[in-house]
Structure formats: C-alpha cells, structure tokens
Nucleic acid binder design. Sequence first.
DNA 1: TAATAGATCATCT
DNA 2: GATGATCTATTAG
Length: 204
Amino acid sequence: MIDIDFARPALEVAPLLLGHELVAIEPDGARISGRIVETEAYASVGDPASHSHRGPTPRTTTMFGPPGGLYVYRIYGMHWCANIACAPDGVGEAVLIRALEPLDGVDRMGERRAAARRPRDLCSGPGKLCAALAITGEDDGVDVRAPDSRVHLTADGVAIAADAAPAESAAPLQGPRIGITKAMDLPWRFGLASDSLSRPFPLS
DNA sequence: TAATAGATCATCT
DNA sequence: GATGATCTATTAG
C-alpha cells in the first residue's frame, strides 16, 4: 500500500512521491522496479505548460480521471512518459515521473536500454524509465495504488541502498521544469540527491 | 564536457 | 500544418 493521498494538488504530491518505489510486473512475473528520485508537477489552471491547460481531450482522459491513475502518453513520436493523476476526479493535474534509481530487474532493464552504459543511465529520464520498465500506452489508466496493478507504487524502505539514507532526511532539491517552453519560471521540479537524475539541479 | 542535429508521429489548432 | 513534459550519436573545443 501507498500512504499518499493523490486527491490533492500535484504540486503537493510531487515531492511526497520521492523515495517511493515504482514497480512493473512482467508477463512472466519478473519484478522490475526503481526508486523515484525526480518528479515534476503539472497543474491545469495557471499552468500553460500542462497538457490539461486547455481542458480535457481524448489524450488527457486519464489525467482528468480519478486520482492514482497512470497517465501515459507518447512524446516526440517515439518515447513514452508516465505520470500519476492527482486532484479529485475531473480535475486535470498530474505528476510526471522523471527519473528512477534502479532497484529490481536491472539486467532486464539493460535488455531494453541497450544504449545505457552503466546502471545510472537506465532510468535517468522520463522516456528512459518507461523503456526500462516497459511502460506503454497499454498501461494508461491503471491504478498505481493497487498492488495487483501491472504498474504500481510501494511504500518507502524497500531495498533502498544504505548510502542513500542521508538524502532522505534532507529537503528535496527543487528547480524549474525540464523541456518546456512555457511557465518556465515555476520551480515545480523536485528531486533527491542521486546519480540517476535526468539532469543536475541548479545550485540554490 | 558541451553543443547540435536527427529521428518520427499523434495530437490539437 | 506546427508542435512537442525526449534520447542518442556525432561533432567540436
């Protein structure tokens, strides 16, 4: 079970998600997972960078759906990005999962991410982690709070490396979101100190 | 290490 | 018809 209430603004959920484990179950039962070390919040009203900014569309159905739904979309015609729907049903907010620290199934990740030269390259970006966990449009809409979902979340403390402990107690890193061309002034990107970030955070 | 270009297409205007 | 919540290989310094 996960101890996060997703029926709240994405801006509140984004930092809370850090440190939790994202899990994908393979068709053969294999467990692939990573620790969330980077997230971004996307709202609707007042956030022109968000897919939901201009109201619901067929693509953003899940983003406007019940909290805890996995919103998966294709970007640049070739990669997938995974988000978790936040706020009450009918409100279009979500948190983008931007990077994971590989935990289980590292070898399986490597098979799908041939370009990765070391473990830190396996899930250090929103498109990379979807490839590593085999998350596609097929998974759009699943409830990540349900332990029997193919893609779901688990609570803190599972197989987290001992040397990562100090970062847990510190306040999350925070900075502007990556890859957007609007609302670039909003510091809605959050992260933990990790070598698996998609990019470094600006220094204070 | 840093900067740049190319891949590639569903989605929305 | 333009535009991306990106990744990788390649080039230059």
